[in-house]
Amino acid sequence: MDDITPGDGEEPAATVSGGWPPGAIPGDGAWPEEYADVEPQSAPRTVADVTPAPGSDVPGSAALSPDGRTLVVTDGTKRLAVWDVTDPAKARVTQTTDIPAGGGGASLSEDGDVVRSGRLGWRLTGPGKAEAVGELPLPKGAESMDVPVEGSWGALAVTSGPKRFTTWYVRAGMEPAALGTDAFPEVPHAFALPPGRLVLGYTGLLVRDVSHVVRTAADPKAAACAATGGGLTRTELEARAPGATWHRACP
Protein backbone atom coordinates (compact mmCIF):
# COMPACT_ATOMS: atom_id res chain seq x y z
CA MET A 1 0.00 0.00 0.00
CA ASP A 2 1.87 3.03 -1.24
CA ASP A 3 -0.33 5.50 0.58
CA ILE A 4 0.62 4.30 4.05
CA THR A 5 3.51 6.15 5.64
CA PRO A 6 5.05 4.70 8.80
CA GLY A 7 5.96 7.08 11.59
CA ASP A 8 9.42 8.60 11.67
CA GLY A 9 12.01 6.10 12.76
CA GLU A 10 9.53 3.24 12.66
CA GLU A 11 9.83 -0.01 10.78
CA PRO A 12 7.03 -0.32 8.22
CA ALA A 13 4.16 -2.41 9.53
CA ALA A 14 3.34 -5.58 7.60
CA THR A 15 0.69 -5.00 4.95
CA VAL A 16 -2.14 -7.52 4.95
CA SER A 17 -3.19 -6.68 1.40
CA GLY A 18 0.38 -6.54 0.06
CA GLY A 19 1.74 -10.04 -0.27
CA TRP A 20 0.20 -12.23 2.40
CA PRO A 21 -1.24 -15.38 0.76
CA PRO A 22 -4.96 -16.08 1.15
CA GLY A 23 -5.60 -17.99 4.33
CA ALA A 24 -2.61 -16.51 6.19
CA ILE A 25 -5.02 -14.75 8.54
CA PRO A 26 -7.73 -16.90 10.17
CA GLY A 27 -11.16 -15.61 9.29
CA ASP A 28 -10.23 -13.98 5.98
CA GLY A 29 -12.58 -16.31 4.13
CA ALA A 30 -9.85 -18.09 2.19
CA TRP A 31 -10.08 -21.49 3.88
CA PRO A 32 -12.69 -23.86 2.39
CA GLU A 33 -14.23 -24.58 5.78
CA GLU A 34 -14.98 -20.90 6.21
CA TYR A 35 -17.51 -21.17 3.42
CA ALA A 36 -19.33 -24.13 4.96
CA ASP A 37 -23.04 -23.59 5.53
CA VAL A 38 -24.00 -23.45 9.18
CA GLU A 39 -27.48 -24.47 10.19
CA PRO A 40 -28.79 -21.90 12.69
CA GLN A 41 -29.83 -23.33 16.03
CA SER A 42 -32.47 -20.65 16.52
CA ALA A 43 -33.77 -17.50 14.91
CA PRO A 44 -31.57 -14.42 15.55
CA ARG A 45 -32.82 -11.95 18.14
CA THR A 46 -31.71 -8.38 18.58
CA VAL A 47 -30.90 -7.53 22.20
CA ALA A 48 -29.00 -4.26 21.68
CA ASP A 49 -28.43 -1.70 18.94
CA VAL A 50 -24.98 -0.13 18.51
CA THR A 51 -25.80 2.19 15.59
CA PRO A 52 -24.86 5.85 16.19
CA ALA A 53 -27.29 7.74 18.38
CA PRO A 54 -29.32 10.56 16.77
CA GLY A 55 -27.06 13.57 16.21
CA SER A 56 -23.91 11.50 16.81
CA ASP A 57 -21.46 10.09 14.28
CA VAL A 58 -19.81 7.88 16.93
CA PRO A 59 -20.77 4.22 16.44
CA GLY A 60 -21.35 2.01 19.43
CA SER A 61 -19.53 -1.22 20.17
CA ALA A 62 -20.06 -4.40 22.15
CA ALA A 63 -18.03 -7.05 23.98
CA LEU A 64 -19.24 -10.50 25.05
CA SER A 65 -17.77 -12.30 28.07
CA PRO A 66 -16.04 -15.65 27.39
CA ASP A 67 -18.84 -17.56 29.13
CA GLY A 68 -21.41 -15.86 26.88
CA ARG A 69 -23.48 -14.65 29.82
CA THR A 70 -22.63 -10.94 29.93
CA LEU A 71 -22.82 -8.43 27.08
CA VAL A 72 -21.37 -4.92 27.47
CA VAL A 73 -22.56 -2.28 25.01
CA THR A 74 -21.65 1.34 24.31
CA ASP A 75 -24.14 3.13 22.08
CA GLY A 76 -22.38 6.34 21.06
CA THR A 77 -24.21 8.40 23.70
CA LYS A 78 -21.43 8.26 26.32
CA ARG A 79 -23.31 5.51 28.16
CA LEU A 80 -22.29 1.92 28.82
CA ALA A 81 -24.88 -0.78 29.47
CA VAL A 82 -24.30 -4.22 31.01
CA TRP A 83 -26.65 -6.95 29.83
CA ASP A 84 -27.41 -10.33 31.37
CA VAL A 85 -27.80 -12.61 28.32
CA THR A 86 -27.69 -15.91 30.19
CA ASP A 87 -31.08 -16.56 28.57
CA PRO A 88 -31.06 -14.61 25.26
CA ALA A 89 -34.85 -14.80 25.12
CA LYS A 90 -34.96 -12.86 28.39
CA ALA A 91 -31.93 -10.58 27.92
CA ARG A 92 -32.06 -7.59 30.23
CA VAL A 93 -30.01 -4.54 31.17
CA THR A 94 -28.74 -4.91 34.73
CA GLN A 95 -26.79 -1.68 35.06
CA THR A 96 -25.75 1.40 33.13
CA THR A 97 -23.03 3.96 33.67
CA ASP A 98 -22.02 7.22 32.04
CA ILE A 99 -18.73 7.30 30.14
CA PRO A 100 -16.82 10.58 30.69
CA ALA A 101 -14.11 11.90 28.41
CA GLY A 102 -11.50 9.27 27.65
CA GLY A 103 -13.99 6.52 26.88
CA GLY A 104 -13.88 4.52 23.68
CA GLY A 105 -15.06 1.28 22.11
CA ALA A 106 -15.82 -1.69 24.35
CA SER A 107 -13.23 -4.48 24.60
CA LEU A 108 -12.46 -7.38 26.94
CA SER A 109 -9.15 -8.24 28.60
CA GLU A 110 -7.32 -11.43 27.63
CA ASP A 111 -8.71 -13.29 30.65
CA GLY A 112 -12.22 -11.96 30.00
CA ASP A 113 -12.48 -10.43 33.48
CA VAL A 114 -12.22 -6.72 32.65
CA VAL A 115 -14.11 -4.71 30.06
CA ARG A 116 -12.63 -1.42 28.86
CA SER A 117 -14.12 1.62 27.26
CA GLY A 118 -11.02 3.66 26.57
CA ARG A 119 -9.15 4.41 29.80
CA LEU A 120 -12.15 3.35 31.91
CA GLY A 121 -12.60 -0.22 33.12
CA TRP A 122 -15.07 -2.51 34.87
CA ARG A 123 -14.50 -5.98 36.29
CA LEU A 124 -17.19 -8.52 35.44
CA THR A 125 -18.27 -10.06 38.73
CA GLY A 126 -21.16 -12.24 37.54
CA PRO A 127 -23.82 -12.51 34.84
CA GLY A 128 -24.79 -8.94 34.03
CA LYS A 129 -22.72 -7.50 36.89
CA ALA A 130 -19.67 -5.23 36.75
CA GLU A 131 -17.75 -2.99 39.16
CA ALA A 132 -15.37 -0.14 38.33
CA VAL A 133 -11.60 -0.78 38.35
CA GLY A 134 -8.64 1.56 38.06
CA GLU A 135 -8.29 3.82 35.04
CA LEU A 136 -5.48 3.58 32.52
CA PRO A 137 -3.43 6.73 31.83
CA LEU A 138 -4.49 8.73 28.80
CA PRO A 139 -1.69 9.82 26.43
CA LYS A 140 -0.90 13.54 26.69
CA GLY A 141 -2.91 15.62 24.26
CA ALA A 142 -5.42 12.84 23.58
CA GLU A 143 -9.10 13.26 24.44
CA SER A 144 -9.89 9.57 24.16
CA MET A 145 -8.37 6.22 23.21
CA ASP A 146 -9.39 2.69 22.33
CA VAL A 147 -7.87 -0.36 24.04
CA PRO A 148 -7.95 -3.33 21.62
CA VAL A 149 -6.19 -5.71 24.04
CA GLU A 150 -5.25 -5.78 27.73
CA GLY A 151 -3.52 -8.36 29.92
CA SER A 152 -1.58 -8.72 33.16
CA TRP A 153 1.38 -7.17 31.27
CA GLY A 154 -0.48 -3.89 30.54
CA ALA A 155 -2.44 -2.85 27.46
CA LEU A 156 -2.10 -1.71 23.87
CA ALA A 157 -4.08 1.41 23.03
CA VAL A 158 -4.62 3.51 19.93
CA THR A 159 -5.38 7.18 19.47
CA SER A 160 -6.45 8.69 16.17
CA GLY A 161 -6.12 11.99 14.41
CA PRO A 162 -7.20 12.85 10.86
CA LYS A 163 -6.63 9.52 9.07
CA ARG A 164 -3.79 8.58 11.41
CA PHE A 165 -3.33 6.04 14.20
CA THR A 166 -0.76 6.08 17.00
CA THR A 167 -0.19 2.84 18.90
CA TRP A 168 0.67 3.08 22.61
CA TYR A 169 1.79 0.82 25.43
CA VAL A 170 -0.19 1.84 28.52
CA ARG A 171 -0.08 0.64 32.10
CA ALA A 172 -1.39 2.06 35.36
CA GLY A 173 1.22 4.12 37.18
CA MET A 174 3.42 4.97 34.18
CA GLU A 175 3.42 7.37 31.26
CA PRO A 176 2.07 5.89 28.00
CA ALA A 177 4.83 5.00 25.52
CA ALA A 178 4.26 5.63 21.80
CA LEU A 179 5.08 2.57 19.67
CA GLY A 180 4.50 4.00 16.19
CA THR A 181 2.23 6.11 13.99
CA ASP A 182 0.61 5.06 10.71
CA ALA A 183 -1.23 7.12 8.10
CA PHE A 184 -4.31 5.99 6.18
CA PRO A 185 -6.37 7.34 3.29
CA GLU A 186 -9.55 6.80 5.32
CA VAL A 187 -10.73 6.72 8.92
CA PRO A 188 -9.02 3.64 10.45
CA HIS A 189 -10.05 1.03 13.00
CA ALA A 190 -7.99 -1.32 15.17
CA PHE A 191 -8.39 -5.02 15.97
CA ALA A 192 -6.16 -7.18 18.15
CA LEU A 193 -4.30 -10.31 17.01
CA PRO A 194 -2.75 -11.52 20.28
CA PRO A 195 -0.05 -11.68 21.33
CA GLY A 196 1.01 -8.13 20.57
CA ARG A 197 -0.20 -7.55 17.01
CA LEU A 198 -2.80 -5.04 15.86
CA VAL A 199 -4.63 -5.00 12.53
CA LEU A 200 -5.10 -1.34 11.58
CA GLY A 201 -7.09 0.21 8.77
CA TYR A 202 -10.48 0.19 7.10
CA THR A 203 -10.71 -0.86 3.45
CA GLY A 204 -6.94 -1.30 3.40
CA LEU A 205 -5.28 -3.10 6.31
CA LEU A 206 -1.82 -3.38 7.82
CA VAL A 207 -0.42 -5.21 10.82
CA ARG A 208 1.65 -3.43 13.48
CA ASP A 209 3.64 -6.03 15.38
CA VAL A 210 4.68 -4.88 18.86
CA SER A 211 4.88 -8.38 20.34
CA HIS A 212 8.40 -7.62 21.60
CA VAL A 213 6.91 -4.94 23.86
CA VAL A 214 4.32 -7.37 25.20
CA ARG A 215 6.95 -10.04 25.87
CA THR A 216 9.21 -7.55 27.65
CA ALA A 217 6.37 -6.20 29.80
CA ALA A 218 5.15 -9.71 30.64
CA ASP A 219 8.60 -10.93 31.77
CA PRO A 220 11.08 -8.04 32.10
CA LYS A 221 13.77 -10.20 33.77
CA ALA A 222 13.82 -12.69 30.91
CA ALA A 223 13.93 -9.83 28.40
CA ALA A 224 16.83 -8.16 30.23
CA CYS A 225 18.76 -11.44 30.40
CA ALA A 226 18.22 -12.03 26.69
CA ALA A 227 19.37 -8.50 25.85
CA THR A 228 22.55 -8.79 27.93
CA GLY A 229 23.44 -12.31 26.92
CA GLY A 230 22.80 -13.69 30.39
CA GLY A 231 24.38 -10.96 32.49
CA LEU A 232 27.92 -10.54 33.77
CA THR A 233 30.00 -13.57 34.60
CA ARG A 234 32.02 -13.69 37.81
CA THR A 235 35.19 -12.88 35.84
CA GLU A 236 33.57 -9.95 34.02
CA LEU A 237 32.30 -8.46 37.29
CA GLU A 238 35.71 -8.77 38.94
CA ALA A 239 37.30 -6.98 36.00
CA ARG A 240 34.82 -4.10 36.23
CA ALA A 241 34.33 -3.90 40.00
CA PRO A 242 37.14 -5.66 41.89
CA GLY A 243 36.00 -7.07 45.21
CA ALA A 244 32.29 -6.85 44.40
CA THR A 245 30.13 -9.82 45.39
CA TRP A 246 28.90 -11.73 42.37
CA HIS A 247 25.42 -13.20 42.20
CA ARG A 248 23.92 -15.01 39.26
CA ALA A 249 21.40 -12.60 37.73
CA CYS A 250 20.02 -14.85 35.01
CA PRO A 251 19.16 -18.55 34.88
Rank of each mutant, 00 (worst) to 15 (best):
D3G: 14
I4K: 10
G18R: 15
P22K: 09
G23Y: 05
G23M: 13
I25G: 04
W31L: 14
Y35L: 15
Q41D: 09
Q41P: 13
P44Y: 06
T46G: 10
A48V: 00
D49L: 03
V50L: 11
D57H: 08
V58Y: 05
A62Q: 01
S65Y: 11
S65T: 12
P66A: 07
P66D: 00
D67F: 02
D67I: 07
R69V: 08
R79F: 12
L80N: 04
W83A: 09
W83E: 03
T86Y: 10
R92T: 09
V93P: 08
V93I: 15
T97K: 08
A106S: 01
E110A: 14
E110G: 15
G112R: 00
R123L: 05
T125R: 05
T125M: 02
L136K: 02
P137L: 03
L138K: 04
L138F: 03
G141F: 04
E143A: 15
M145A: 13
D146V: 10
E150N: 00
L156M: 04
A157N: 01
T159S: 02
V170Y: 05
E175N: 13
A178W: 13
G180K: 00
P188M: 00
F191P: 03
A192P: 15
A192V: 12
L193G: 11
L193C: 06
P194V: 06
P195N: 08
R197W: 10
G201Y: 05
T203A: 14
L206F: 02
D209Y: 06
P220A: 06
A222K: 15
T228E: 07
G230D: 02
T233S: 15
R234L: 13
R234W: 11
T235M: 07
E236D: 05
A241S: 12
A241N: 14
T245L: 04
R248H: 11
